[in-house]
Amino acid sequence: MTTGLLLLDSCTVINVFATRRMSDVLIMVPGTVAIVDRVSRESQFVRRAGSGDDADERDPVDLTAMTASGQLTVLSSTNEGELLIYLDFTLDVDDGEAMTAALAIHRNATVATDDRKAIRLLVARAVPILSTQDLVHDWCDRTNLPRDEQRQALLNIRERARYEPRLDHPHRSWWEATIGAGDR
């Protein structure tokens, strides 16, 4: 786990927010956790989920409380060097992903992302990568979270963010064991 600056990109923000325990997860991350301003401006949603008729309704990803409390820092840049890297990346990924990559490279940060293309580009620039599963697994592990709460967090990711880790993800077996193989 990182000890310096951890930048969350949009897909990880959505996934961790979907747990309904984002604040608890981020507390366990040593160092500063941040998003770039472009990510904070993106309108993103998760599903409400549950057994009600409104399960498919969209709930906005609202980070206001965490940014107001300082738990989540919003970063921007006017640095020519960072912006040059950012411009380079805008040819390959969207604006938020490009700024996240640029700041990570220039500020020696770790990036939390689950996006295949972003991972490929960042690994090529020797940027350390974490995934949603790394963050959530670490939180569960370090807090000794009861099994049913772990399960609920993962179910929330699956149902609210419509996300599942890839079959070859190192934490895939933990994911499956926690959710329960029969519950698909």
Binding site: C11, F45, D94, K117, A161
Partner: peptide
């Protein structure tokens, strides 16, 4: 195939990311 990021895919499909995942 890794040719587009999730953000680019969402842009191209005029949708939010979770809708795109669906």
């Amino acid at each position: 195939g890794g040719g587009l990021s999730e953000g680019q895919l969402a842009e191209r499909l005029l949708a939010d990311r979770v809708s795109v995942r669906e």
